[in-house]
Design a protein around this nucleic acid. Structure first.
Lengths: 341, 341
DNA sequence: TTGTAGGCGTTATCAT
DNA sequence: ATGATAACGCCTACAA
């Protein structure tokens, strides 16, 4: 008897399988002492024999899998997906006793790539993370497959949970303005619209909106990625050097170009990142992507959708702003470097 | 007919469910043209109706789940688990058409924490990642549960796949010695044996062994973590300043204390890390934890174990050494900062 | 209160 | 060659 099943317990206990099932699922009315004793005996026997319910058998009779799938695009592991997001997703699922399966999307999300994903029915819903947002083609496919889905990091009218880049950029700019800083520059990116994440447009729009409201002249530097890395770096800093900014707001990743440039003299910089640690000592205003929050809201939305079958209006999650004044101290080793072994 | 099943197809095609099943699984002998036509019709019908096999039903009749679980300890998401490892695990599983479920271990791995994990039977095997190695208590439980298991990042005689810290430290020291460097210091950690990862001992042993072979006097600095961060930093550097090392080997994470210290003048340092990017410009010799390699070997070992039922002798995976000479250039922005958004 | 019987979707076996 | 039929492990409505 390699693997114990309900029938085994029933036989040893001298009752029917149905009774065992009821007892083990708490659907056994234990009114009288004799029944309590019986139930206790069955439970003890089950534990002793090492009984574990077979999830597959359960799924088939209950009509659901008690599992959702986290779908991550191919580039996702290089850049985007965060352990905080993953941790939060697992925590929520744990509460409702569901499993999480993780799947990597094939290179391309066109016809055959999709086929791979929807080949079999093994989860109740789909949580997706695409580094530059879920492609429309894929969103449509999910609808066609009638699989309850939630799209993280994607800005569409419905069924999405995404970071509020627009609001974050606006807030950041306003903070600088309230400090009395006026010459605020924005360093963005020039990316072809086709492969562009919504955040590229939204952060820029947030900055421009706040500057416009304050009647300040904006300065936008948006190098294209076509040139080499050095070219971008130099291009950004030539522009900034001319402008003599009192503060700089950078699209995530470009802040390093600024703080390491020769002209830079420690003016406040604001930028967006998902990293836990910041490795330089300039005064900085960091907008952290709300990974954990997004994960939590994402699963919850998905669970609701699975239960009700209804789609929902997309939800923007606010960034978290932390401010660190500059310091002339030598940089210290972090107490526990998160990304090091 | 919300979800299509084999019976539906069979009815529409005017054949029995068994025939449909055979056709769809390629176990239908298509010898004669008439049979080929029939098979083609069934396949077309299945595609048209959007049939997807139900994984649970399959599992129950085939007796296995076609899935393994990756178990990660609570602290794992803050420190250890690597996306490269995860990516490689998924890639291997994809080839054999299996699913990966990810599970977070409860706070403690004692009795009740374990119970949570083994509550139900839903995978064919367990791949585990514990930041400081799998506790014996847990390893024993896996054996008792008769679940095929592989323990990553753990050094026990059997069923483990772990980074070769001993060999890596020895190699690193030998490299320095071959460069003609003689005064080589080692910066380690003083951690209570109970909660100590094997790498703490092994790296030190590798260093000491190589120094001994070369008949060089070792210098070991091993601050305890009891004091505050500042205390550790200062302690390390007071020792090193006195010793005047020509090279320093650091346990992962401590290298920052060295390169930012006032006495430090750019001597070569060697250290261990799982990070993709190094953020300082000293000449350094980096031993990278072989995450991807470990993931690949880990799943493969687990799949073999599931198939054969036999345990295996543990396997050490070599680190990957990369050397970067020091530079006086200003640090540039990385082309694609992996940990940034 | 307890147990019997039927069904969930799929596949393997064995007559036809 | 094809198709009934019987499992697989579990759950539950209903009958005893």
């Amino acid at each position: 008897m390699l693997v114990v099943k309900i029938a085994d317990i029933a036989q040893r206990a001298g009752v029917s399988p149905a009774t065992v099932s009821q007892v083990l699922n708490g659907k056994y009315k234990e009114n009288r002492p004799s029944m309590q004793a019986r139930a206790a005996q069955i439970r003890e026997l089950a534990a002793e024999m090492g009984y574990k319910p077979n999830a597959a058998a359960r799924s088939i009779v209950r009509g659901r899998f008690n599992a959702i799938s986290l779908l991550i695009d191919y580039g996702g592991w290089g850049q985007g997906i965060s352990r905080h997001l993953l941790g939060e997703v697992m925590a929520v699922l744990n509460e409702v006793d569901m499993q999480l399966t993780v799947t990597q999307v094939p290179r391309s999300v066109d016809g055959e790539g999709q086929a791979e994903i929807f080949k079999q029915r093994c989860v109740d819903g789909l949580l997706t993370w695409f580094t530059t947002g879920a492609p429309q083609l894929f969103v449509d496919r999910c609808a066609a497959e009638r699989v309850p889905s939630v799209f993280l990091n994607t800005k569409l009218p419905r069924d999405c949970i995404y970071p509020d880049d627009l609001g974050a950029a606006r807030k950041l700019t306003q903070c600088f303005l309230e400090q009395g800083l006026r010459r605020i520059a924005y360093v963005g990116q020039d990316i072809p619209a086709a492969s562009r994440h919504y955040s590229v447009d939204d952060r820029l729009a947030g900055y421009l909106g706040a500057m416009h409201d304050a009647k300040r002249k904006p300065l936008v530097v948006a190098p294209s990625r076509v040139g080499d890395e050095l070219g971008i770096h130099d291009y950004i800093n030539r522009c900034l050097e001319d402008f003599k900014p009192e503060a700089v707001i950078c699209y995530g990743g470009l802040e390093e170009s600024v703080v390491t440039a020769p002209w830079y003299r420690g003016c406040p910089i604001g930028f967006f990142t998902s990293a836990s640690h910041i490795y330089f000592q300039s005064p900085h205003w960091v907008m952290r992507t709300p990974d954990a929050h997004m994960g939590r809201e994402g699963v919850r939305a998905l669970l609701r959708k699975i239960k009700t079958g209804r789609s929902f209006a997309s939800q923007a999650i606010p960034f978290e702003l932390t401010v660190r004044p500059g310091t002339s101290l030598r940089r210290r080793a972090p107490a526990h470097a998160e990304d090091e072994s």
